[in-house]
Computed example of a mutant assay.
Amino acid sequence: MADVGYIRVSSVEQNTARQLDGVALDRTFEDKASGATTNRPKLQEMLEYVREGDTIHVHSIDRLARSLPDLLEMVSNLKARKVNVQFHKENLLFTSEVNHTQDLMLSMMGAVAQFERAISKERQREGIEKAKAAGAYKGRKKAVDNDSIREAMAVEGASFRKVAAALGVSVSSVQRAMKEIAACS
């Protein structure tokens, strides 16, 4: 029976030190990715690693999932596999035993986490709109300028995929640049 830690922050710049500080763990899995999806490499690795009788330790509910359906499904699947889940901030432990009160708490706390994420995204969107209106927001800087893409596309036999791979950008970036170039011509 292993004590397994799962730590998540949304970006590389964020510090993980406060999560599970002082908790004795046999193994830790750490993601630096958004909690909006369960498609996170270390989360998936941890879910494959844990076995019956193990306990997963998570700092808080929103570190595991920001979507209520994802959270409920994940905890339910773990409980069915007889893997315990301990949320330290909320002081909640989920085991394979039926406990309707804890199931209710998980649903409520998960709903709060999902709501907080929605409000945060809404504020961000409003801030961007105001900054755009004031001319202060220009969007993310392009990784490669349109001239470089045009030159790469001029090579005989060049395709969107080949140019994207050569320049280290996405195919959609090449397509968008070519549309902008065509519109300016």
Rank of each mutant, 00 (worst) to 15 (best):
Q114K: 06
T16V: 01
R140Q: 01
L64N: 00
S185T: 12
M46G: 03
D70N: 11
Q175C: 11
S172G: 05
I128V: 12
K179P: 00
T37F: 11
Y137F: 15
N84I: 12
A134M: 04
I7D: 13
Q44E: 15
N99Y: 07
I149P: 02
T55L: 08
M46Q: 06
I7M: 09
H59L: 13
H59Q: 10
A118E: 13
T28I: 05
V50F: 00
R8C: 01
G168C: 10
Y6M: 03
A154Q: 08
I7N: 08
L64G: 01
K141I: 15
R40Y: 02
M109Q: 01
E116I: 00
E45L: 00
K82N: 07
K121M: 06
C184Q: 09
E151F: 14
I181A: 14
K121L: 11
S34A: 09
N39I: 15
M109G: 00
K138M: 07
N146K: 07
G139T: 15
L167G: 04
R125A: 06
D3M: 14
S34M: 11
R161E: 12
R176E: 01
Q86I: 10
A134R: 04
E122A: 03
I149N: 00
Q124E: 03
T16L: 01
I7V: 13
G22F: 06
S120F: 10
K141F: 14
R51G: 08
K79N: 05
T101H: 06
R40V: 02
C184H: 09
R161L: 06
K32N: 12
S67D: 04
D62C: 07
D70P: 01
N146P: 05
A17T: 09
I7E: 09
L25N: 15
K142F: 14
E180W: 02
Q86G: 09
Q86L: 11
A17K: 11
R150A: 11
S107N: 09
M109F: 11
N77V: 12
H100V: 15
R51T: 12
L167I: 12
I128P: 00
V9P: 15
